[in-house]
Structures are given as structure tokens and as C-alpha cells.
Design a protein around this nucleic acid. Sequence first.
DNA 1: TCCATACTTCGATCGTAGCCGAAGCATACA
DNA 2: TGTATGCTTCGGCTACGATCGAAGTATGGA
Lengths: 231, 231
Amino acid sequence: MESSPNIARIGALLGDNTRAKMLSALMHGKALTATELANEAGVTAQTATTHLAKLADGGLLILQKQGRHKYFALASEEVAQLLESLMGLSASAEPLRVHTGPRDPHMRAARVCYNHLAGDKGIQLYDSLLAQRYLRLVDGAPQLSKKGREFVVGFGVDLDALQRSRSPLCKPCLDWSARRSHLAGSLGRALYTRFEVLRWVSRDGGRTVTFSRKGEREFNQIFPLPAGSAR
Amino acid sequence: MESSPNIARIGALLGDNTRAKMLSALMHGKALTATELANEAGVTAQTATTHLAKLADGGLLILQKQGRHKYFALASEEVAQLLESLMGLSASAEPLRVHTGPRDPHMRAARVCYNHLAGDKGIQLYDSLLAQRYLRLVDGAPQLSKKGREFVVGFGVDLDALQRSRSPLCKPCLDWSARRSHLAGSLGRALYTRFEVLRWVSRDGGRTVTFSRKGEREFNQIFPLPAGSAR
DNA sequence: TCCATACTTCGATCGTAGCCGAAGCATACA
DNA sequence: TGTATGCTTCGGCTACGATCGAAGTATGGA
């Protein structure tokens, strides 16, 4: 009878508040242990176990045992992207109160999305890479140009290592705050990591990213906004 | 405490089987009445009413009263896209049995996604439009070129009417069967409608689209696959 | 060997949400 | 004005799943 994939199965997984908190927590990109996730969601370890089992069963999380710890992470970028677009819909459909939270503006300015930079700064990065022809769009997918290769290597990214891995180097990722793309994929991750190493940015534990004064200045210098871009 | 948008609220909406069926039914792109949706989901009218109210409240559906009928449709392309990506995740995470249904291959070949063409044929259309320079990618978004304008008008699309409407002309939409983009937006809709008018394609009531012999031939002639494209 | 820590399993409780029958509005048409 | 049709509201039934206490199993370190 039903020939289309079962939406409800995954929907139900996302529909529980506790599980949603866990997934949100994992949007940082780091893997977390069962207990950490239990705390994050505000439930006991037993409850967390059942939820995490369901999420892993459902293909949303992958897990890795390490000694007596069990680390959970989002199963793929697709999952992360799905969560982002859910947030997007949720944000646009929700009454305004949520938008007025004090931390919200900072979230919109810069945040971490599955280990790469998102928010206004993420968009700036993406637009600037395109404008400087470090990235080129081929069939809608961003690709690193020869000029871009030289740049990222010069910026301190171990490009060879990235290319050895199987995961795609560049991927676009849709933002929920602005409705624009920013750079995901292993290069997106590597660049963000580099920003942290350079101490341009720091995290406050949540998804919010704060630029240091020096970081902000150098970031804007190396990744200027293209002339014609709005706001 | 929580400053990120509430995923669970929307997740819960998607998590019920009855509601999922209704939403899937609306992926055709047409607006349906409450009773039609009730039948589609296999529940009574009362039950349907409550579900539809929730979906509309949650911002996933919009409704329009027309006499004693009440028509429901997906609220936006974002919603349709979210559903598509849910199906994608679901399909990849699910045990294989679902992939083996008899109608499934046809669904992959050509189907309707929110009133535009999706599946292999949808991708062929998109790639061909790009290859023939009717479409151009600007910042990842497809745009109609001057050559493209002439073509679609010649093909029988009332371009002026489309441009008067506020909704975007061209949008990419990600496929769940192949993981590629195809053409959405009002132009995508208009082209598909034109295919129906020309009797190139017909629907079997579901999302599956069948090409007539003549339709297939002419479609392939006007929208040939670019030389280098795989399979 | 023993203990602490991390996670799992079991069983019981409880709340919520889906469902439908029945009755109630509203609209269309004769 | 009456009658059929489409949708809604109400009330009660039911089932499922989230939760946690208590007890059980692994793992690491003293």
C-alpha cells in the first residue's frame, strides 16, 4: 500500500522533547557520552539509554564504545542539515517570544553547526570564498579552485589529509537564521578548527561562537564581504 | 534556558502516522479537502479535523475555505523540501524491504514533488536546462538566462504571469531517490503543468508520473542529457 | 580482589494523544 | 423551507510511550 518512505518513524524520533534536546546538543559536532546527554536533556541515565537506543536504531545517531564510555554523534551531515531546516521552519512559524532571548542575536551572528561556522559570519565566509574565486559553483555544489587550494594550504589546512578521507570536501548547508547557504563539509570543519587554533573564536559551551577582537579584525580582512552583498 | 527553536514541536507533528500520510498526500502539490485527506489517511472526518487543525496551527499547512469545502495545502516549499529530506533519511536508514516494492522503481524514475517533476526525469530536465544554458547558477541558485526566457516562452509558458507572482521563479530542490537537485519554484511547476497539457505525462493518482511514448521521445529530444553526465 | 563509575534491564506508574460515536453548525441546492 | 453534504465539538475509551526506582552487568583503577 505505502510505497513512500516512512516519514512518521523519523518524525516520531524528533518529536520528543528529550530526544530533541539531545540532538540539539550534538549539533555542536562533538560526540558526547550517554551521561553527558542525559544531563543535557535533564533526565536520568536509564531514560537516556532508551532514547539513545531509539535514535541510534533509527539511524540518526552513530555510537562508538570507548572503554566504559559510549560516545554518541549525529550519524551524518544529512541529519545535521535536517535538524537545521527543522529549526528554520520552527523559528519562522513560532510566536515571537523565542526570538527575543538575549542569547539569540549572538546565535544569529555566529554559531557552530555540526563543527563548521554558521550564522552571519558563516555566510560571510562562504560569500567571500566565492567572491575571491577560492570556491566555484559547479552544478550548485561548491568546489575548491586551484587558487583556493593554494589559499587554504597557506592558511594552515592540511588539505591532503582532508582529501584522503571519503567525506566530501565542500558542501553547502542551509542556515535557519538567514536563509542562505554557508560552507559545510570537511573543509568547512577544517577552517573552523583553524579559527579555534588561531584563537580567533571561542565557544561558550553552547553553540554560540564569540570572536576575539583580533579574530574579528583578521577574519574580516581575509574574508571581506563582497562589494555588492546586502547587509 | 533553551534559546534554539523548538524542534520537537514540529517533529511531533510529523511523528504521527496519520498526519504523515496526509502530508505525503499533499506532496502532489494540489490542495485537498478535509474529507479527501481523511480518506487518504484512513480515518474518520472527526479525527482528520483535529489533525488538520494541528498541522495548520503548527505552520505546516495553509487552508482556504471555499463554500462548504476546506482546502488544505502545504504551507511552503520549505515544508515540501523538509518532507523530501525526511524521506531521504528514512529511505537510507530503513531496512531494504521498502525499496523492493513494485511501484518504487517507477517512483524513482519520475514522480511529482509539490507540483514539479522529480526523480530521474526531473534531474534530466534540470541538468539539460543547465547544459543548454537556459539556466545559469548564480550563488548556487538557478536563474533563467535570456536564452532560457526565449525558450520557455516558446515552449508555451506564460512567463509574465509567473513573474508577476511573488514566489521565486527558480529554486533547486533536493531529491531523495537520487541525491541530486532538480528544478522547483514556479517555473518548475509551470513546466510540469505544460508537460501534462501536452499529454507527455500522466499521473496514476499517486505521485508516480508515467510518460507516454510520444512524451518520452519529445522530452528526450528537447531536454537531452548532457554528454558527460553519469548514468 | 574490591570498589567506583558508566551504562543497561525490568517493572510499575502516569499522562498524553489518537480514535470514534453522537450530536451540532454551516453551507449548498432543490 | 427542507434536506443532503462537509466540517466541527464533545465525551469517553484505549493504547502507547516517557519516566524513574531498583537491581543487574560491564569496565577501569586502586
